[in-house]
């Protein structure tokens, strides 16, 4: 006890100094307007930093829900597109034409497996036969066309990616369909080629390539990509055209399966004519 008292006595000036500094701090930041504002700003910035950190953590755990919301929001963008209007009910989005007649159902799905490094790439989505998904249904992403359903189990489906040498799409540029093929040639995971477009056609780099009306699997106007290279080979009468895909397959996370409700009737009619 005596040692403690001796210690306190020896350091008494420091204890008094500390107490007086606390009082000074109070006086400085309480009674001086400039210092008060500075202190308030500093305190606010600390509080803001804390709130931001807290918000980031809670946002992270809220991401799944936000992704689901985004899927629905992206799907509703079709309302403003040329392919008709859209109604959302449950996890199935009903796509209608302007006469309100049902044309397509759109089913949001999440990509659970995806390859981009093979010659024939596929990806797997977490929706299948139980959700009304079957073979040969079109699949799009929020950016553009993504692929075609190859096979379905109860809860999963395999989709042939656009990055698949077996996948061909008829391109539509400026509303004109070109009866040639848009092909992936196994070069880069975002580059495709179109061959057979005559050099007399007025195309330019930056032109958008979309789906046309020749397919019943996809609505027309779904982006396929943008022309990035347009070479005129003097030995050929055709362009050598490269397309950058609209869909980024390396970061493909969410897709929408397109179901054409009347495809059976349409195919029956076409086969009659054939």
């Amino acid at each position: 006890m005596q040692q403690l008292l001796a210690f306190i006595e020896q350091r008494l000036h420091l204890i008094v100094f500390a107490l007086l500094q606390v009082i000074c701090g109070f006086l400085v930041f309480r009674l001086n307007p400039f210092q008060q504002v500075s202190f308030t700003q500093a305190a606010n910035s600390v509080t803001d930093a804390g709130n931001t950190m807290s918000s980031e953590v809670s946002d992270y755990f809220d991401l799944k829900y936000q992704n689901e919301l985004l899927q629905e929001q992206i799907a509703t963008q079709f309302q403003n597109s040329t392919i008709g209007t859209l109604l959302v009910s449950g996890d199935t989005i009903e796509l209608k034409d302007t006469s309100r007649k049902s044309l397509y159902d759109v089913i949001p799905a999440q990509v659970v497996y995806n390859t981009t490094f093979k010659a024939n790439n596929v990806f797997v989505i977490n929706k299948g036969g139980n959700h009304g998904i079957h073979k040969n249904m079109g699949v799009i992403s929020s950016e553009g066309l993504a692929g075609l359903v190859l096979k379905s189990t109860a809860n999963y489906s395999t989709v042939m990616s656009l990055l698949n040498t077996n996948m061909t799409v008829i391109p539509n540029i400026h509303g004109m369909e070109y009866y040639t093929k848009l092909l992936w040639v196994n070069e880069a995971p975002n580059v495709m080629r179109i061959s057979g477009i005559n050099k007399l056609e007025k195309l330019k780099i930056g032109d958008e390539v979309k789906t046309g009306k020749s397919s019943m699997l996809f609505p027309s106007g779904i982006p396929l990509g943008t022309i990035t290279k347009l070479d005129k080979n003097p030995k050929s009468q055709y362009y050598e055209t490269e397309i950058e895909t609209a869909t980024n397959f390396r970061s493909l996370e969410y897709v929408f399966v397109i179901i054409n409700r009347d495809i059976d009737q349409m195919e029956a009619l076409i086969s009659e004519n054939d």
Binding site: H13, F17, V28, N32
Partner: peptide, 13 residues
């Protein structure tokens, strides 16, 4: 208020 007092205290220590 407090500014010179605080500075003087630091100076003396």
């Amino acid at each position: 208020p407090g500014i010179h007092t605080s500075a003087c205290l630091w100076l003396i220590v």
